[in-house]
Simulated assay, not measured.
Amino acid sequence: MTVGLALHASGPGNQIDATVLLAREAAAAGLRSAWFGQTFGADSAQLAAIVGREVPDLEVGTSAIPVFGRHPLLVSSQAQTAQAATHGRYHLGLALGTKLLIEAGFGIPFERPIARLREFLTALRQLTETGTADFHGELLTATTPLPARVPGAEAGVPLLVAAMGPQALRASGELADGILPYLAGPRVLAEHIVPAVTAAAEAAGRPAPRIVAMVHGVVTDDVESARRTAVEQLAFYEQFPSYARVLELAGAARAGDVAVIGDEKTVAAEVRRYRDAGATEVVFSGTDLAGEADRRRTWTLLGELAG
């Protein structure tokens, strides 16, 4: 199992330069991968390409680009460019997105998300594997009157989905290479998520899927204060059905309740629980919950666990 970080540089300086510095520190600590979220700011695929180019010891990935407001041809171009720039170390994460952000941001209806995900994955797989597509779906069309291959990306691009609901897990098992569940604790992974996506992959004749568990947490002695901060930071997710479902399955009252917070022994034990639940990789975010000293302390532990 590999251990990585979700990196987000904040502050008034140049975000790209700051992210590269963080990534170098992560690699020096022994971490194996760096992942970048996609909002309305920096382009996550470009950021991954830059970091992967600058820090060759890290695998890099996006977690995750919404399929609404994008087209498979454009996402394929981004992903193949990142894959060529990093010489095969790029991993593309996709997401359904949320009705709130899609409709408010793009002004388009958030309709038939699972059908769109299926069509997007089907067309994107053709493009990233062959550089061509001839896909005509109900919601998307993707054809290649000109070649769509980026030389240097011939190995293809791993396709992962931020899936946690039953329908999204089924589609991901059938059409993707793995999933990126977030705020889904070990018991929820073991009892609900891993069996569903694995069964779908088996039924489709695909290899066992990667389970990249995205975990919010930090090593600290001030557990109570860090937990309060986590509750505040993660409250945003509680309004969305997919997160509300996994929190209910975990018996958690708030999203912050599933954050992994404690000393080195506690956090290491939780990482092992994720591994035992079926996670093939664990990626930590929120490591700045308790300040800079504890952030560095957390990275040191995670680097040891990665080793």
Rank of each mutant, 00 (worst) to 15 (best):
T220Q: 05
P166K: 12
T298N: 03
L74Q: 12
R275M: 12
P207G: 06
D43M: 04
V231Q: 06
R228M: 10
F68R: 01
V219T: 04
E264F: 11
S63K: 09
Q46M: 12
A259D: 11
F135S: 04
G69K: 02
G185Q: 02
I65N: 08
L302P: 07
A244C: 08
A23Q: 07
M164R: 04
H192I: 03
A163K: 11
A190Q: 15
E174S: 04
R187M: 03
P113K: 02
R254E: 13
P195Y: 09
P66R: 01
R118V: 06
G217Q: 01
R297G: 04
I108C: 01
A163C: 06
R254W: 04
A34P: 05
I193K: 02
L249T: 11
S172A: 06
T287I: 12
E174I: 02
G107S: 06
V282R: 01
A6L: 15
T229M: 08
G93C: 06
L247C: 10
A268L: 06
V150P: 00
P109S: 06
G37N: 02
F110Q: 09
T62K: 14
R275P: 06
G286K: 01
A155S: 10
A199N: 12
L47G: 03
L183W: 00
W299H: 15
R118I: 03
L121Q: 01
R187W: 03
P181D: 06
D288M: 15
G30M: 03
L117M: 13
E59Y: 02
V212F: 13
Q80R: 13
G41N: 08
A29D: 02
A253K: 11
Y274A: 03
P151I: 00
A162D: 00
L100S: 07
A27Q: 07
R275D: 13
A290L: 09
Y237L: 00
L146Y: 08
I179F: 08
H71S: 11
I102R: 05
L117E: 12
V55H: 00
Q126S: 11
V67F: 00
A95R: 00
A203N: 08
E264K: 07
L94E: 04
A201E: 05
A26D: 10
G41H: 09
L234C: 09
A142G: 11
T39L: 14
L7S: 08
Y243R: 02
E238Q: 14
L124I: 01
E270F: 13
V223N: 00
A171F: 06
